[in-house]
Write a protein that binds this DNA or RNA. Sequence first.
DNA 1: TTGAAAGCGCTAACAG
DNA 2: CTGTTAGCGCTTTCAA
Lengths: 344, 344
Amino acid sequence: MSTLKEVAALAGVSMATASAAINNGPVGKASRERVLAAAKQLNYVPSKAGRMLMTGKSNVIEMVIMTIDGHPDIVRRTALFYYLMLGVSEVAEANGFGVRYTTRSHDAPDVTEYFDHVVGDRSADGIIIVPQFARDYSFLSALHRARYPHVMLRPSRNAEDSNYVDLGDYEGGQMVGQELVGVGASSIALINGPQSHLCAIERERGLSDALLDLGGTIVAKSYSDYTISGGYDAMARIFESGKLPEAVFCTNDYMAAGAMNFLREKGVSVPRDIAVIGYDDSDLATVVYPALTTLDNRFFEIGQALAEELISVIRGETTTIARSLIPIFRERASHSYGKTGWAD
Amino acid sequence: MSTLKEVAALAGVSMATASAAINNGPVGKASRERVLAAAKQLNYVPSKAGRMLMTGKSNVIEMVIMTIDGHPDIVRRTALFYYLMLGVSEVAEANGFGVRYTTRSHDAPDVTEYFDHVVGDRSADGIIIVPQFARDYSFLSALHRARYPHVMLRPSRNAEDSNYVDLGDYEGGQMVGQELVGVGASSIALINGPQSHLCAIERERGLSDALLDLGGTIVAKSYSDYTISGGYDAMARIFESGKLPEAVFCTNDYMAAGAMNFLREKGVSVPRDIAVIGYDDSDLATVVYPALTTLDNRFFEIGQALAEELISVIRGETTTIARSLIPIFRERASHSYGKTGWAD
DNA sequence: TTGAAAGCGCTAACAG
DNA sequence: CTGTTAGCGCTTTCAA
């Protein structure tokens, strides 16, 4: 590995000149050419560490997904966040930033320390935080105190002034409620994620507000774990309780797929006997039969927005981030029968 | 942000002593305590850049997935690599390494430059390369030349001496062939990925070698793009060609799901009329009906192995990596092919 | 436009 | 065990 010193020596200029030449600074044409030639000849690549030390910039973005212990793990058991990461990555790299991904549990003894280190070790210029649970987010104050560039996926209740890009879970819940009522369903079952999960909380809140307005009723409610088997079991519980609703809203596609598996086994026809709506627009949705109506929460775009906003804060072009992307309804066969009237 | 200098000053010791105290070096008990107290008081976190400059180590691992332009994109359209990333991440973090993920196209003008930079800028201690296509891998020579720590997913034909963890695509293809013949199917259709895709090439080679040994025949072959709709179209082509095989091997679950969608539309019963086998053991497999028999290529474990081996090279404990993890057959309860004999 | 010198924050070598 | 000194590779004053 060659250093700038060697390049400068070979080009017969000072290090300062060599540096300027390489960074498109003010250098004479002749010098620039000689430096660039020397750099090429020596296979010179600037050391990140040296540059970081001087500039204080790493050109790296950290992205952390918050988890909790002893709970179904959306991170490890579903690929939900994959497209979010892809969106972040695309925008970051287009702007010359590398992306480091990690996961941290609220229950890990070193959560606070982790955030202190992110802020303190200066190996990343900013951080994207993906919260999942209604938990303590006091570690955010460390970010504020240091004015460290950060964005969260969705607003934090515990830190009013935090920067965020919202994924519209509340609005999504409303959309589902409106759709179901609009289509003639009035008795609705909810198969939701864990009660501490922010998506679950918001989607339920949206649904129930919409139903309050429009006149539908939640006749059964079951909290599950976002998995296929969890959805199956939840549907079983509702089925065995005796009162079969006209529609079931599963707050993710995995549970919807499980619920549909159960209904098929029991000979309940979807959508003739019961309508099913999922959430997330995952690959599963087009593969179950009948294809699942679902909401696309636009994770790729949200990832892009997260990265765009964070970079803009890092560059000092923005100070406050408050952006929102509402889900898109993806209508498919699993609930469409209702459009023309319900089975008797 | 406080520096070691300030900590040392506050503790009343030299920087060297402060450094030693913080890195568990040989320091007197009293000094250590004073330093640690000062560090805590000043909220001191060591700067990564400073440390990197001295030690030459970044404690970061880079992971790059190779793509090509103008081809179906497994990275963006499926979540296949998510669990691989998770495996890498788990082991890396357990060993104190951060992980940076990226993607690079063989057709990008800056591929070579990218690898030169990875090697040259010393911002990562090693790299995990996920090749996908039978293409030029001459950029590997840069890694060799610099003795830069690296591992590839599967062996590279173009660089015999490269380090690798193999995912057993060839063996997987063989396993499918053995299973199908063992179960009584002799006419088999293959719905494969792109002909330039390494997984596709190897899985087909394995299948075809096994059938040669055991006496089955590939009666139809269709190259597709690993997507659901691609599988649907491929199945349509085979169906319309007139000769319906006893079994279809789809080299990923997405295409298998598409093929099953097509068969259902045509009233062909799976597994009664035709058997279907997928590959990858994705979430889709348990959600289609009937549940899809598939091969689990153990991406999580492979990710772990990749990280373990790379770290061991980084630490100088190993020089050559050649490891192999063979897929596991996942036969489903209500499976997509008949163990008990084929329909007449 | 160019060069000399200083220093970013840290660790390593060595003398005490 | 501790302090001094040197220097990792780079950018950034500031003079020339």
